[in-house]
Design a protein around this nucleic acid. Structure first.
Lengths: 347, 347
DNA sequence: TTTTGGCACTCGAGTGTTGAGAGTGCTAAT
DNA sequence: ATTAGCACTCTCAACACTCGAGTGCCAAAA
């Protein structure tokens, strides 16, 4: 009885769909009606017993219908799900949003909002700081009070990063400009990863006779590029409050854990990181992720690219009982559109 | 009976304190015990009836104790409240946090976290973009693809703003550098407000014979400084999920409204703006603000200064029933410490 | 061998009742 | 002016009860 017959599969599919639709445990009678097959409730019950034995469904108590287990969801999304085609009209509107936005930072936030609004779930989007591939455009040094120097790093895709570093001595504005010039002339256009590598070798070559200007430039840049203390990846979350609509998250304590997760971000980042390596839409169901707070939640995520390179991940987070058939293609198209928008911006 | 006797005042104070402490309606018996006065419950009842008539307390139903009304809270915080002195040890630790942080942006976020952590409420902090008073330090133009130009504005306190503008034509890097140089030489150190005014007069003087370089600089800068579409003030909120602990906000719908308010920010900004004009700690109780979402909440806010100028507002938001006697001095000291930290950074 | 009908059983949700407890308002006595 | 006493009201928790949905299992039918 450890074999999953086509009929059992079909019934599981109907059951999951039904449960996703109205959140109530599904009984044998309902199932018998909703499925096209001419089977009596009793037969259904037998099949359900099998499914339960296989760990795909369970009943919350003796006399309730069945609900899918995590494994059940897994099987459902992996092999049973039929994704809905997207509404053409909506896609068109959606594309428009992406075409009109120009500022990359803003584009990221807009995307997150769109995700949450369209799906009525919480939208998440991560911008990877693994910027090894992104071209380096310009570096500026601005002297602040004391021995602090503000470093402004502009990448070729228009992203700007600011960092304040503490120098060993005070530098004159002229020195800083010179150093920046040297740096920009030497490395402009080079991918950031390559810059880092070059810095290391350059440093080894730093000798007494090297021009002071270059020494300064390399010293400051080293602090910027190699400083390990830097912040991790960027994460934007929006529409968290959409999650409050779902009764299964109604328990305030659960909700609170979830919100704290959003604030601390660490767990989510790790999850998104996983999905970044694999292409295409990836789905994490319930506690598969190993994070307690995400117990009753699923994450649907997809990496997005800019000019062929994966630069981040986006997706939504919602209760395990979410309309996957709509969410999945939606996340997919969003990743593609964002990738397209970012790529066209870069040139 | 429209007069508030000292005894009635005293009883109101005890009642509010008691209600804040354990969230239960306070009955005449409890009140008779907790107050030092040797009064019988019956007497208390008479007084309570008076207070009820004056609209300072109400009973949720016939036979429950009394709870303060919004007006009652108002009277309480305005004239009855005795603030608790802060724990010296804690203040010292607190001061340390401020002294070690250097990056202003980071400082803001840290402050918000501190606020929420220490009070177990939601911390809010607004950075006013009314930057008229802040000195202008440096402007950089970086050409991006197409006709877009990235403008980086550095203020004297180390804040950096990025903005992307669309130029009418493509500018060469050399042109941009020249324009920036002109601008930096002309205006560095000038307060931003003054820069704006100067721009307007400069523009009137722009004639055919003016140097092309200056024209360019002024044109770009005009777009940056006078563009009305720019984002409003910055608002950082943290610890929202602390609010979930309070039973009076337990209704998911209410909570959701609140969270949406945090996301949309507009209402909160308006409120904080109010408190910015007046110095010192200001308290908004319940719907005094006129915002439905804040019905059962109070906001305790104080403006903070940098080098003598008000540059923003910080505070906490929590249920009306919050421990004002601790929160108020806490918000106060935080505002002062942040102001001090910002001022010392600027030099 | 698979499917079905029937039957006993379980559980949860909703409903009505009841009694205890807390608190009030009013009045008469101090 | 204050207090004691009393009747009254309201909430809340406990309890018993019913109803309906759904299950498991067995024996009969296909």
């Amino acid at each position: 009885m450890t074999e999953l017959t086509p009929r059992a599969e079909f019934l599981l599919k109907i059951l999951v769909e039904r449960y996703i639709a109205d959140g109530q445990p599904v009984g044998s009678r309902t199932l018998a009606k909703k499925t096209g097959l001419a089977l009596s409730p009793a037969t259904i019950r037998n099949v359900m017993a099998d499914l339960e034995e296989m760990g795909l469904v369970r009943s919350p108590h003796t006399s309730a219908g069945r609900i899918p287990t995590q494994l059940g969801y897994r099987v459902f999304v992996d092999s049973l799900l039929t994704v809905q085609p997207l509404d053409v009209e909506q896609v068109r509107k959606f594309e428009h949003e992406f075409r009109t936005e120009e500022d990359p930072q803003h584009l990221i936030e807009t995307t997150s909002h769109l995700l949450s609004e369209m799906t009525q779930l919480a939208g998440i989007i991560m911008v990877s700081r693994r910027e090894s591939q992104v071209g380096f455009h310009q570096l500026e040094f601005v002297g602040l009070s004391g021995q602090r120097v503000l470093v402004i790093l502009v990448t070729q895709d228009g992203q700007v990063q600011n960092r304040i570093i503490h120098a060993e001595r005070r530098y004159s504005p002229a020195e800083l400009v010179q150093a920046a010039n040297y740096f920009n002339e030497t490395y402009s256009g080079t991918p950031l990863g390559a810059v880092k590598r070059a810095l290391v070798t350059d440093m080894q070559r730093v000798t007494e006779d090297m021009h002071r200007m270059m020494q300064l430039a390399i010293e400051i840049a080293r602090r910027v590029f190699l400083d390990e203390k830097r912040e991790g990846d960027d994460l934007v979350v929006s529409g968290e409050s959409n999650l409050m609509e779902f009764p299964e998250l109604g328990d305030i304590q659960k909700l609170r854990k979830l919100f704290d997760t959003f604030t601390s971000k660490r767990d989510l980042l790790h999850l998104l990181d996983l999905s970044m390596r694999a292409g295409g839409v990836k789905i994490f169901i319930g506690s598969e992720s190993g994070y307690e707070a995400l117990e009753d939640c699923s994450v649907v995520a997809a990496p997005y690219t800019a000019d062929g390179e994966v630069v981040g991940t986006l997706g939504v987070i919602g209760p395990t009982r979410m309309p996957y058939e709509h969410v999945i293609p939606f996340v997919d198209i969003t990743a593609k559109l964002l990738g397209g928008a970012l790529s066209s911006l870069g040139r």
